[in-house]
């Protein structure tokens, strides 16, 4: 059991994660083959005047004011910190990179352990904030089901157990086993639950023709 979780299951989870995302990506492109978004010909476009640096900054701040930043600045900060740390902490973690190096001989750059530990703590605090919103804000509660709590748990538990393992507060062997298990669970569930927004966010912003695209996407569905 321990062997299975620490060995083959890591590989299986990784493969399901990659293939799952690939499947979702392919489905997305299949479903959006139709291109009917009417993009005006570029000859009709009025080239914006060259802006000075000051104008550019002012324009950027003005744009920011029309976003979440204005309606809910606290959540904007919390969710930004949460997502940035969520990606950076495990990717540039010494513990992970050592294991990667041992098994495949490749590894990424690693942050100092104290920094990783701090980023992990930030993820946990932000996760707690999300939980609080879900429990106490009427508007979030109105659309919450058990499933939402479960997915939040799936996203946060790898960080909780990773944190406990690093601090060695509880029985290390048990905690690390739980950590690996929860990490695998998270990888497996990402492509098939609402965590799939990780991929969809970018597909939507880069390929679908819409008001909020980062670039001029032309796909429609």
């Amino acid at each position: 059991m321990c062997y299975f979780v620490q060995g083959p299951l890591v590989l299986i989870a990784g493969i399901i994660f990659i293939l799952g995302l690939l499947y979702q990506g392919i489905q997305f492109f299949k479903l959006t083959k139709k291109k009917e978004w009417g993009v005006p010909p570029s000859s009709l476009e009025i080239k914006p005047q060259k802006q000075t640096k000051k104008q550019w900054v002012r324009e950027a701040l003005r744009t920011l004011n029309g976003t979440l930043w204005k309606t809910d600045p606290v959540l904007t900060i919390v969710t930004s910190v949460f997502h940035v740390c969520l990606i950076i902490a495990p990717l540039f973690l010494l513990g992970h990179n050592i294991l990667l190096d041992q098994s495949w001989g490749l590894s990424l750059f690693s942050l100092p352990e104290s920094v990783s530990n701090f980023l992990t703590l930030l993820v946990l605090i932000c996760g707690l904030y999300f939980l609080g919103r879900r429990l106490f804000m009427a508007r979030v509660r109105a659309i919450s089901t058990v499933y939402d709590y479960l997915v939040l748990l799936i996203a946060v538990v790898p960080f909780l157990t990773g944190f406990l393992a690093y601090q060695q507060w509880l029985n290390y062997q048990t905690v690390i086993l739980l950590h690996i298990l929860s990490g695998e669970l998270m990888l497996i569930t990402i492509p098939f639950t609402k965590l799939g927004h990780m991929l969809f966010f970018f597909l939507y912003r880069f390929f679908i023709g819409s008001e909020y695209s980062f670039v001029r996407g032309s796909r429609t569905w």
Binding site: M137, V140, I143, S144, T145, K194, G196, H197, F200
Partner: peptide
Amino acid sequence: RYLSYCAHCSLCA
């Protein structure tokens, strides 16, 4: 897919 990717976060309110 729309239904399943919705994070139920209420930011659209």
